[in-house]
Structure formats: C-alpha cells, structure tokens
Nucleic acid binder design. Structure first.
Lengths: 148, 148
DNA sequence: TATTGTTATACTCTATAACTATA
DNA sequence: TATAGTTATAGAGTATAACAATA
C-alpha cells in the first residue's frame, strides 16, 4: 500500500525554462556518455580530442579557454588522452613554457569513429524537430551562453 | 610573445546542438547559483524545497522520482533543508517506513523570496526571445527529455 | 519478497590557490 | 612581473551496492 495516493506535481518548477533545460541536459548527457563509452571517451575528453584534431599544435591554455574549462582541469583530460596514446605533448621551441598538442594516428582514428557516433546521437536528440525549430534552439542557447 | 598566433576554432563542435547546450547550461547554472547563494540555496535544494512547498506531505522517494534524482542523493538535500530549519520529516502513521515532508514557516518564507529571484533569473536567460521562440525551446527540451 | 530511508562509496565536473619554470 | 603548465584540494552532482526497518 502506498502511503501517499495524492499525485506529485512539479508544475511550478516546469514554469522555469532552466528547470526543463537541466532535465533535458541530464538525459542528453547520460545518452552521450553511453554513446562514447565504447570508444573509451567521455563528453569532455571527446571535446578535447576534437579540438586537438581540428587545431593541431595548439596549447593547453588555448584549449581550456576555448572549451570554457579551467587550465588546471584541462591537464587531467590531456593526461587521459595522452595515456591512451591518442595525443602527444610536444615541446614548443618558440616558448619553452608551452606545449604543442597533436593527435596520433590512433587518436585521429578513434576520433573519426566517435564523431560519427556523436553525430548520430545529436540527430537522435533533435528527432522530430524542423530545421527552423533547431535554428531557434541554437539561437536561444547562444543568447544564454553570451548573456548572463 | 605568444607561442601560437593561429586562431583556435571549435566550429566542428559547434555543429553539435549538445555542445551548445552544455555551454549554455554551464552559464545558466553558474548564474542561477549566484542568484540562489544569498538565500543559502542551490539549484537542487531550491528544487527540493519547491516540491515540498507545493506538495506538502510527500515522501522522499516520490520527491526523488519527480526530480529524476536517486533516493540516496535526495537524503542529503533533505538533510540540508532540515538542518536549515526549512523542512521537517514527520513520521507517517499509514506506513512507518515512510516520512511525510513539510516545510516550516521559515521554509515557506525563504521559498517565496528565492522563487521571485529565480523567476527574474529565468526571464534574464530568455531575454530577447519572442514568446513563440520560447515555446519552441520548451518543445525541443521536452522531446529530448522523454526521448533518448 | 519488495519497498523506504539510509549509509557508504566512487566517479565526474567545477573552482581556487599555489608552485615551477620560463618569459 | 606575468604567463604556461602543473599539483593539490574542495565542493557539488551523479550512480550503485547494501543494510535495517517495515510492508
């Protein structure tokens, strides 16, 4: 027997777009984690690998700035990619404090495969939405990101 | 002198709506945390308090299910609200395993004030968007939440 | 047997301070 | 002095297993 038969409502919270966005983000994040797990990647290590593949030679601090991640935390993600053999830290002759990040052949290979899976994941998340609706969502997300 | 003058691009990641949503959610979360800090609340303790105010007498397990949070984690949030004197755990005579959650007068008071601040925060996040655009965003978030 | 609340634990993400070696 | 990479640490969110009391 249930102690409370009365229905539970989150209607007041549903009024907040932020609340709906948090719930959607939880679902999206869990689905993306499942998508990337077979590749040995997570959302942040995938993003990091993507940036290194697409911007060969960039420095960790540039990477952290672009991904809105603290430099201190970026170290860990690059560590994990380096230990997996997908990324290298090369000394930078122009500035001996800096490192130049490059992906390996294995890194480029896993990136191509993971990227295809993430593309399918992204399409799944947007399934049933028209192109103009997706554009509106992008616009709204962009405004939230720069505003605040 | 900068070691790398070449520009860094996250254009490939920008193609993913999930990436844009993650960035927007980070900004939104940080802004909401700043909004709730003066009240001694965080996103999850505010959501929990809201549910208890709007659904007096509900059980922690119902609360966890409604907020998509594990029961084990819910315990901590109710603990914090109880220690602040905003929520009470009453024994449930119908089921001695269960607790009935109620807010105190102080809890209802801080909720009213925090809720007004969260409403202002939510409006700020959506500033510049038309009503039909907000509706589209809600629709998209709803599809992502139930889909997956 | 199943459920409720709970404890313990682990992993992830985020944020800050401080150190070193360079510039 | 300022910056790049790093280490250490703490707070917060998430997830699972397991236990005692109760149904």
């Amino acid at each position: 027997m249930r102690a409370e038969a009365t229905s539970v409502s989150d209607a007041r919270l549903r009024a907040f777009v932020g609340y709906n966005m948090k719930r959607a983000m939880n679902v999206l994040q869990a689905d993306l984690a499942r998508t990337l797990q077979p590749f040995g990647l997570r959302m942040l290590t995938f993003s990091t690998l993507s940036m290194i593949v697409e911007n060969p030679g960039l420095r960790p601090s540039q990477l952290a700035e672009a991904l809105l991640i603290e430099r201190a935390n970026m170290v860990v993600y690059v560590d994990q990619l380096e230990q997996a053999g997908w990324v290298t830290r090369a000394p930078n002759p122009l500035d001996r404090r800096a490192h130049a990040l490059h992906c390996t052949e294995a890194g480029a290979c896993v990136y191509d495969q993971a990227r295809a899976a993430v593309e399918a994941h992204d399409r799944r998340m947007l399934d049933g939405l028209r192109a103009d609706e997706v554009a509106t969502v992008r616009k709204a997300l962009g405004r939230i990101e720069v505003g605040s």
